[in-house]
Each structure stands twice: as structure tokens, then as C-alpha cells.
Design a protein around this nucleic acid. Structure first.
Length: 810
RNA sequence: GGGCAGUUAGCUCAGCGGCUAGAGCGCUUGGUUUACAUCCAAGAAGUCACAGGUUCAAAUCCUGUACUGCCCACCA
């Protein structure tokens, strides 16, 4: 046992030490045979390729981790894996940019090798970072979405859905990114506000008369397949059922009636193209319009655009407008602002084209999604609204194929002769049909099979994280399905409710007819000091590693614990500094306490004679413990932190330690009184450390190891038990009675402060209006703390309220 | 256009029917108390965005308005 703690705590060196210690001793290792109920957490696998972790990531991951550490210290057998999302479009974009690659000029093999290299490096960087932050995952459970197990599970998922008839290949208009040259899903899109022109363009009717339509997309003129008008609109009534002639391109299109057409927008005459927007697609389907595709996969005009073919969308628009002007068909142009959909990964405006793609059916099952959303417990509750709104607004099935290289391949071959789909056996998964040959022959007898060359959307894999973690459909001895599935808790930020959360619910519903988890905890974002989203384009990147170097990981975590669950949190260096000061305070207070516990052996039994101030602080401790557990059970780590923080600073340090000193230093103290003080100090400080442990794991471990480990004989504070409220230690009467004494202490301090006296300055006499017998119990305490020559019972002239009166005689 | 958050001390936030509206930072004054000056004590500072309403009682509930952020829809 140590005599005294070192003067200072070196967070840089010690945090590093404990990271390695926890690793070596396997403190966070999940052992399925260990005692205790299992608590499993599904945590987001970040994209590793971009090396973009900022203070917001640090915030949301630590917030989830507070809960994990809390659960572990409540005796749960914690299953806490980390994943890396390293397949799919984000990775490809990153590699393309970093190596300035043109995808069409490099072989698929070379490209994938670069992706793998980047993700491997990224993974290492990330792992180092999480460890530094004190994230207590079991690294032996690490998965990466491109690894074999994930690929196998994703392909299994595909085959299972295919066999259940929930997945199909359709040749339909899909959202397309001309830059990335791939199909997208609705959730890949973002809004972009832009200034543009509403162009009024004259169409001619059979009777030779003309009327203008209004459009922001004149380059889609050659894709025009119909005009629509409201049947109540007197201006166009006579043309319904007749034909109109498309200017420049000179072909006929029908004029169709539709009550949904807004007579007040533009000219009230609406041009429908294949395809400008979702309205076009709906009408194309319902009214069986012809198909004229004017934009190709690269975002250039096709042959239907005649002399304009080959031009980009932008150039084509300019050229067509120029020609319209020359022919006097452009009536006018109005400035308008509109919102268009752009691909969130590259910012390019999305188009619609028709290609065959794989879809998972989601639109027809909205009721199921709403039901599942209702079954799930949401923390905080208001986040569920975002989910419901997303489900209500679903228009498209989930397009899961991407025309990219780096991703999980579809386990699909097509028969060249009868076009049938051929799937591999489960035991042969994972497969890559572009390199592996199919072990099957088509029913029609042909061996000539063509591979599916598309790869899966990245969400196709990450939507399976609970099933991947549980090793779904693996042999029983290798599977954790009956132990950790459905998982207890999903943690994530709010912006991926419509993707990760939604798709995971879809998968578990289809595959196992359950929810993937019981609870979901949604965090907000960490913003910059001014409340803006942290992004490269704003140049406001805040590097958490720099903060850790300057103030320690514990201090950064202290800041993370500030935000109410689900709320955004601005980065605030001042709060990190407060965290740093709290660490120092913990260190110093522990130094004092431990130096007086050297000859002490703790006994769980409560001493028979506890002094009044000991009863008081223990009661206060019980009060904050009750609050602490209440808040953590609802994942309200911020309120839990507040409970322990307030107890530690305001009650324990500022009052109790000052009040108890005279019993520690004095030599005329009875053995019972000293034991009472030591028992209380031990119990309170250990509770304080344990309550701080989920939030500031390093400093609490440091102090625990220096003293309490010797008493409790445990490897680490993080696998020790958090104290729960003990009714025997709580006495509301003690609190009430002692509040009177604290009021006297405060009043005397105020008196001295007003007179600019030092607190230590001894005054002649303190008179307290209290029975002499009772005052005797507090005499020593008041004398020592307030520095008076004598304390006497008698009439007081200062009224402190609550029937307390005192006099101060200098 | 619809929705969800938010608007409380100079700053960052807590409180969400009922004691005199709180904390931290900052500010003012004082203090070398043998754990800590990365500290301690005392203090100043708020028409709780605005306007109505419900109630014995509203920062807290309801209605509306304004502003900020986000989500969705529209986008011919």
C-alpha cells in the first residue's frame, strides 16, 4: 500500500498506460459463459476510408459508451463490438479522389486493391483513436463490412429475401448519379437549393394555335411525352384528347386531363417527360405513355435529342434555349429558386434513367414498419417522429444494386439462354460471380451462365449488423443468435434514422420476424463553437486528438457528457477545461482521503456509532446515487453526470472534507469517532470514483488501482460493482438536522467575508440559540471549522430563518 | 406547404405546473485554511423570444406570432 499519492497526475502518460493495461488484461472481453445477464450493443461502423473523425464523432461514440460502462458496472455481461464500414461508394469516392483515379482507366482488380489498402490503414487509425478515447469495445469482436463473414451474411440475406419473394429485379426508372454512374436509393439524396429560370416555351396545337408551357428543364424537351391540363381549366379544355407538337423536335404528344394539375403554377399547362421527376414517372406508369430517354448514363443528351445529342445537360440546356430564342418560341424567362435532389456523396444533381436493378420491397409494407417502430423503445421519444415521417413518405422500393466495383457482389448468375436467375448453395458463400464459376447448371441444361456484375449498396450489409454480430445462420456452436439477438440496444445519431435504423428494422423483420433490438438511443451532433455542422467545406474541422493531447481523453469525455440525450452540442473548450479541473480535484481529494486510510481495513458492516456529519454526507450520497441510477436507466448520462458532479464538488469537497478534517488531524479524537470518519471517507470516495468511472474511466481507474484495488481485490474498477442505494445509510432526519449547522457555517463565512477577514481569523465567541446539551454535540465541529474562542448557548440576534438564531462576538 | 427540435444570466446550458428561477464559465470583492490558487468564501447579474388563454398558481400546459437549426413534401 502506498504512503501518499504522487503530487500530480500525468494524464498523458497514465491514460496511455491504462489503455494498454485494459488490453493486456482483457478487461472488456466478452465471454459468453461468464455470469450475469448479457447486454448487447449495436454501434455504428464508421466509414474508415475518409479519415474524417472529428469532435462530433468523439462525442456521439462516447455518449453511447457511458451507457456501456454503466451497464458493465451494474453486473451485465456486456457484448460491445466495433465494426468498420469499408465497402461501397464512400470508399470508392475517397480512393478516386486521393489517387486521382478515373474508374474507366483502371482495372477492377487494381482498384479494389487500393480500396482494401486504404480501408486497412483507416481501420488501424480508427482503432488507435477509439482506444485513446477510452472506448471499451471488445476488439476481438471487430468486423468490417468487406470481410468474409459480412459478405457471407449479406449474400445469405439476399438469397433468403429472394426465396421469400421479397426481392426482385425490375427494369424501371431509377435514381441515377451521372457523376458516380450508379443507381441510387431515395436515401442517398440530399436537397440543394438553386437559382434557375422558369422558361415559357410555346407548343403548337392541331388548330394551329399556340400555348406556352413553363419548365426549368428545357433540355428535356426531346423527352416530352405528353402535356397535362386541369379539366376545369377553360384555357385548355378544347385541346384535351387532341395532340400538340413539341417545338424544335416536331413530333406529336397527347394532351391529357388531370385534376391534380395546379392551374396557377406556370401556365397551368404541364409538360411530362421521361423522366424529369417522380410525377412524370407516376403518370408514365398510370397512363402508359411512350418512352423517350433523353439523358444517358453519363449525363449527356441521347440521340432522341437529334442535333443536340452528345451535349452535357448544361450545354444542351443552353443550346436548346438558344435555338428556341432564334425561332421565337421562348416567350419569357423568370428567375425562380427551386430545390433539386443531389447525390449526397458527390453533390451531383440526380437524374432518372431506366436500367434493370435489384429492389427490396418496402413500399407495400409500410404498416409493418410503423408497427415495428411502435414496438421499439425510443430514447429520446421525439426521434421516433423522424422515423414515422420517413416511412410515410416512402415512394420507392429499396434499390440495392450499384454499378460500382468495390462492394459485396450479388450471389447471382443469369442463364444466357432462358435468362433464369441462378443462386449458389449456402455452403459456397461468399461468392464473387465475376471471378468464381458457378457450380450449378441451369434447369434448361445450359452451362453458359453470365455473372451479375453489379455490387450491393453498402446499406445492404450494414443493415445486418445485429445478424452479423450474432452470426446468423452459422452452425449452432458458432452462433450467438440465442444469446445476443435481438440485441438490447442500438446507438446511433439521428441523421441515419432513415437509412441504417430503417433498413435494419426491415431486415430483421423479414429474416427473423423480430425487431433487431429492444431499445434505441439516438444522439445529436457535436457542432463547432458557433453551432454549425462540422464539415470540410466549412473548414471548421475540430480534431479530437489535439484536444486529448492538450486536456486528456477524460476531459473531452466530460464535455461529451454535457448534452441532453438527442440534443446537439456545441464544442466548448471551457467545458473541457472544467473536465480537466475535475480530474485534478478528484486527484487531490483522493490524496487527502487516502493518506488518512493507510491504517484502515474496510469492513462492510456499518459502524454502530456514526457521527452526525458522517450520517449527513452518507445520506447525501444515497440521494445522489438514487438520482444517478434513475437517470442512467433511461440513458440520461448527462443528468447522471450532474448528480455525481454536484455531490462531489458541493457536498463532499466543499463541505464534508472541511468538516471532517479536525477528526483526522486532531489527537483528542476517540477511536469510534475516527473509525466513523474513515468508514465514511472510504465509502463515499469509492462511490464517487465508481460513479465517475463510466464518464472518466482513466482517472477513476488510476485512483482505484492506487488504493481500493488492495481492498476489493479486483483487476479493474470497470469490472467492479457500482453501489446501489442503501436505505440503511439514508436518513432524511440527519440531512434536515445538519442543514441547520450548515446554515450557521454559511452565515459566519458571510460575516467574515463582509468584514474582509480571513476565514481562519479567530473571533471571540459564537452564541447559538439552541439547547446547551444539543449544542455540545456540535461544539468541536463548529470550533474547528469556524475558528471561535468559545461556542455557547444563548440568545441570538441574527435570524437565519428556520428558527435558527446566532450572535457573533468579536 | 407540413413536421421535429430550440429560443432561460455576458457565454454554454439545466429546470418542463407549485419554496426567493439554477449550474459552470466569465465578472466584482476578499482569502498563502498543512488535498487542491487547476483552490476556497462572499457577491453582482435574468419582464424565462413575443402576444393571448387555461389555472388558486405558468419559464413549465394550450393557441398564435417571430427567429434559428434540421427533416419531409412540392419543385410542370
Amino acid at each position: 500500500m502506498i504512503e501518499e499519492l504522487p503530487k500530480n497526475y500525468d494524464s498523458q502518460a497514465r491514460e496511455k498506460y491504462w489503455q494498454d493495461f485494459w488490453d493486456e488484461k482483457n478487461i472488456f472481453k466478452f465471454d459468453q459463459d461468464k455470469d450475469g445477464e448479457i447486454f448487447s450493443i449495436d454501434t455504428p461502423p464508421p466509414y474508415v476510408s475518409a479519415a474524417h473523425l472529428h469532435v462530433g464523432h468523439a462525442m456521439s461514440y462516447t455518449q453511447a459508451e457511458f451507457v456501456v460502462r454503466y451497464k458493465r458496472m451494474m453486473g451485465y455481461n456486456v457484448f460491445y463490438p466495433m465494426g468498420f464500414d469499408d465497402n461501397g461508394l464512400p470508399t470508392e469516392r475517397f480512393v478516386e479522389k486521393k489517387y486521382k483515379i478515373d474508374k474507366s482507366k483502371i482495372s477492377k482488380k487494381e482498384f479494389i486493391e487500393l480500396c482494401l489498402k486504404e480501408t486497412k490503414e483507416g481501420g488501424e487509425t480508427y482503432k488507435k483513436f477509439w482506444k485513446r478515447l477510452g472506448i471499451s469495445v471488445d476488439w476481438s469482436l471487430l468486423y468490417s463490412t468487406i470481410d468474409e463473414r459480412c459478405q457471407r451474411t449479406a449474400q445469405r440475406s439476399f438469397i433468403d429475401l429472394y426465396n421469400k419473394g421479397l426481392i426482385e429485379r425490375k427494369e424501371e426508372p431509377v435514381i441515377w448519379c451521372p457523376e458516380c454512374q450508379t443507381a441510387l436509393s431515395q436515401s442517398d439524396l440530399e436537397d440543394l437549393e438553386q437559382k434557375t429560370y422558369l422558361n415559357y416555351i410555346n407548343f403548337q396545337f392541331e388548330d394551329g394555335k399556340t400555348a406556352p408551357i413553363a419548365t426549368t428543364r428545357p433540355e428535356l424537351l426531346p423527352a416530352c411525352v405528353a402535356l397535362y391540363a386541369n379539366p376545369k381549366d377553360e384555357r385548355y379544355e378544347k385541346y384535351i384528347g387532341k395532340k400538340a407538337i413539341v417545338p424544335i423536335f416536331n413530333y406529336e404528344v397527347p394532351v391529357i386531363a388531370d385534376e391534380k394539375v395546379d392551374m396557377d403554377f406556370g401556365t397551368g399547362l404541364m409538360m411530362v417527360c421521361t423522366f424529369g421527376d417522380t410525377e412524370d414517372i407516376e403518370r408514365w406508369k398510370s397512363d402508359k405513355l411512350m418512352t423517350r430517354i433523353a439523358i444517358d448514363k453519363t449525363g449527356c443528351l441521347t440521340s432522341v435529342a437529334g442535333e443536340f445529342s452528345g451535349l452535357s445537360i448544361k450545354k444542351g440546356r443552353e443550346a436548346i434555349l438558344q435555338t428556341l430564342k432564334e425561332k421565337l418560341l421562348l416567350i419569357k424567362q423568370e428567375d425562380i429558386e427551386n430545390v433539386c435532389n443531389v447525390h449526397e456523396r458527390c453533390g451531383t444533381i440526380s437524374e432518372f434513367i431506366i436500367t434493370p436493378q435489384w429492389f427490396i420491397k418496402v413500399v407495400d409494407h409500410k404498416k409493418d414498419w410503423i408497427k415495428r417502430g411502435n414496438e421499439l423503445k425510443w430514447f429520446p421519444k421525439f426521434m421516433k417522429v423522424k422515423y414515422d415521417a420517413w416511412v410515410e413518405g416512402l415512394k420507392w422500393d429499396w434499390c440495392i444494386s450499384r454499378q460500382r466495383y468495390y462492394g459485396v457482389p450479388f450471389p447471382v448468375w443469369y442463364c444466357d439462354k432462358c435468362k433464369k436467375v441462378i443462386l449458389p448453395e449456402d455452403k459456397d458463400l461468399p461468392v464473387d460471380p465475376t471471378t468464381d464459376s458457378c457450380l450449378k447448371v441451369c434447369d434448361c441444361g445450359t452451362k453458359d451462365l453470365k455473372p451479375e456484375i453489379d455490387v450491393m449498396d453498402t446499406w445492404m450489409t450494414s443493415s445486418l449488423t445485429p445478424l452479423i454480430n450474432a452470426s446468423w445462420k452459422y452452425p449452432k456452436e458458432k452462433s450467438l443468435m440465442d444469446k445476443i439477438y435481438p440485441m438490447n440496444l442500438r446507438v446511433q445519431a439521428f441523421e441515419i434514422i432513415r437509412t441504417w435504423l430503417f433498413y435494419t428494422i426491415v431486415k430483421s423483420h423479414y429474416h427473423t420476424d423480430t425487431l433487431p433490438w429492444n431499445d434505441v438511443m439516438i444522439s445529436g451532433w457535436g457542432l463547432d463553437e458557433k453551432g454549425r455542422k462540422i464539415s470540410k467545406s466549412l473548414g471548421n474541422f475540430i480534431d479530437p486528438e489535439t484536444i486529448i493531447e492538450q486536456y486528456s481523453a477524460d476531459a473531452l469525455r466530460f464535455w461529451s457528457a454535457e448534452s441532453t440525450l438527442g440534443q446537439n452540442l456545441r464544442y466548448n473548450e471551457e467545458e473541457v477545461k472544467v473536465g480537466k479541473r475535475t480530474i485534478t480535484k478528484l486527484w487531490n481529494a483522493s490524496k487527502l482521503v487516502i493518506s488518512h486510510l493507510q491504517d484502515y481495513q474496510h469492513n462492510l458492516a456499518i459502524p454502530r456509532e456514526l457521527e452526525i456529519e458522517d450520517k449527513w454526507i452518507l445520506s447525501e450520497l444515497e440521494k445522489s446515487l438514487t438520482l444517478y441510477h434513475k437517470h442512467f436507466s433511461h440513458y440520461e448520462y448527462a443528468k447522471a453526470k450532474d448528480a455525481i458532479n454536484t455531490f462531489f464538488w458541493d457536498r463532499f469537497c466543499d463541505y464534508y472534507l472541511e468538516l471532517v478534517k479536525y477528526r483526522l488531524y486532531g489527537d483528542d479524537i476517540s477511536a469510534e469517532s475516527k473509525l466513523s470518519a474513515q468508514w465514511t471517507l472510504y465509502t463515499a470516495l469509492l462511490a464517487i470514483l465508481k460513479m465517475f468511472a463510466p464518464i472518466m474511466p482513466f482517472i477513476s481507474e488510476e485512483i482505484y488501482q492506487l488504493y481500493f484495488k488492495g481492498q476489493e481485490k479486483l483487476e479493474s474498477i470497470h469490472i467492479s460493482q457500482l453501489p446501489t442505494a442503501d436505505e440503511r445509510l439514508r436518513s432524511d432526519k440527519a440531512i434536515e438536522e445538519f442543514e441547520d449547522i450548515l446554515r450557521i457555517v454559511q452565515e459566519v463565512r458571510k460575516y467574515k467575508a463582509n468584514k474582509n477577514y480571513s476565514i481562519k481569523k479567530e473571533l471571540k465567541e459564537l452564541v447559538v440559540e439552541m439547547p446547551a446539551e444539543k449544542l455540545r454535540e456540535y461544539e468541536k465541529l463548529l470550533k474547528a471549522v469556524l475558528s471561535f474562542g468559545k461556542i455557547t448557548a444563548g440568545k441570538g440576534n441574527l435570524d437565519l430563518g428556520e428558527d435558527i438564531k446566532i450572535s457573533i462576538i468579536e
